[in-house]
Simulated assay, not measured.
Amino acid sequence: MSARARLQGAFREAMASVAAPVSVVTSMTGGLPHGATVSAFASLSMDPPMVLVSLDRRSGLLAVIRESGSFGVNVLGATQSSLALAFARTGGTAKFDGVSWQVDSGLPRLPGAPGWVACDVARLVEGGDHVVVLGDVVVAETTAGEPLTYHGRAFGTHAILEAAS
């Protein structure tokens, strides 16, 4: 095994030990919804409000976002792992078959997701085999619900620790 392959394997294991939020990033083109599950999503700036998502450079969704200039982030809740799995597979618009969704700010929104952020693309940044999409937030909404997280190659949720007395 090459040194590069060993490093990639070690890096993959290290990243599996990091808990990450699970989100479905969506966009529209030609009146059709597109989406993909991502765990590389984060807040970037409060002033102005910005987020970032990372997409594989071969992603069909990335091509749609480049064309449309906007994207939505559905931050999934603990009861939505089936949605995360559905949007993690390949399949273009077929991922929306049998899935409830609505248009919000011109973007596909998944009802029941505790977090929703609609963005205009601010910039695309090349990064290895991925592209980091920087978004200017135009809408942000939350509802009650425990978050869906991904850690150790498994879905879970956040548990609040009791405060020390």
Rank of each mutant, 00 (worst) to 15 (best):
M1Y: 03
S2A: 13
A3M: 15
R4W: 00
R6D: 12
Q8V: 06
Q8L: 15
Q8G: 04
G9H: 11
F11E: 02
R12F: 00
E13P: 01
E13Y: 01
M15D: 12
A16W: 01
S17Q: 13
S17M: 15
V18R: 09
P21R: 05
P21A: 15
V22N: 07
V22G: 08
S23L: 09
V25S: 13
V25Y: 14
S27P: 00
M28C: 11
M28F: 11
G31L: 11
L32G: 07
L32Q: 12
L32T: 06
G35D: 12
A36Y: 00
T37I: 08
A42G: 13
A42R: 03
S43D: 01
L44D: 06
P48Y: 08
P48H: 05
P49F: 09
P49N: 12
V51M: 08
V51F: 08
V53Q: 04
V53F: 14
R57M: 03
R57N: 07
R57W: 05
S59K: 10
G60C: 02
G60N: 03
L61D: 08
L62H: 07
L62V: 06
A63M: 08
I65C: 05
I65V: 15
R66Q: 13
E67P: 02
G69W: 03
G69V: 01
F71T: 09
V73C: 12
V73S: 03
N74V: 03
N74E: 06
N74H: 09
V75L: 15
V75R: 07
V75Y: 08
L76V: 02
L76S: 09
T79M: 12
S82M: 00
A84I: 02
A86E: 10
F87W: 09
A88C: 14
G91R: 06
G92M: 06
G92F: 10
T93R: 11
T93K: 07
K95M: 04
D97M: 04
D97Q: 10
G98D: 07
S100V: 13
S100P: 00
W101G: 10
W101Y: 11
Q102F: 10
Q102P: 04
V103N: 13
G106W: 04
G106E: 12
G106N: 12
L107R: 11
L107H: 03
V117S: 14
A118P: 01
A118F: 00
R123P: 00
L124A: 08
G127M: 12
G127Y: 11
G128R: 02
D129Y: 01
H130E: 05
V131D: 12
L134E: 11
G135S: 09
E141N: 02
T142G: 05
T143L: 01
G145V: 13
G145Q: 05
L148G: 14
L148H: 10
L148N: 10
T149E: 00
T149Q: 06
R153W: 08
A154D: 03
F155W: 05
G156R: 03
T157F: 06
H158W: 15
I160Y: 09
I160V: 15
I160Q: 14
L161M: 10
A163W: 05
A164F: 09
A164P: 00
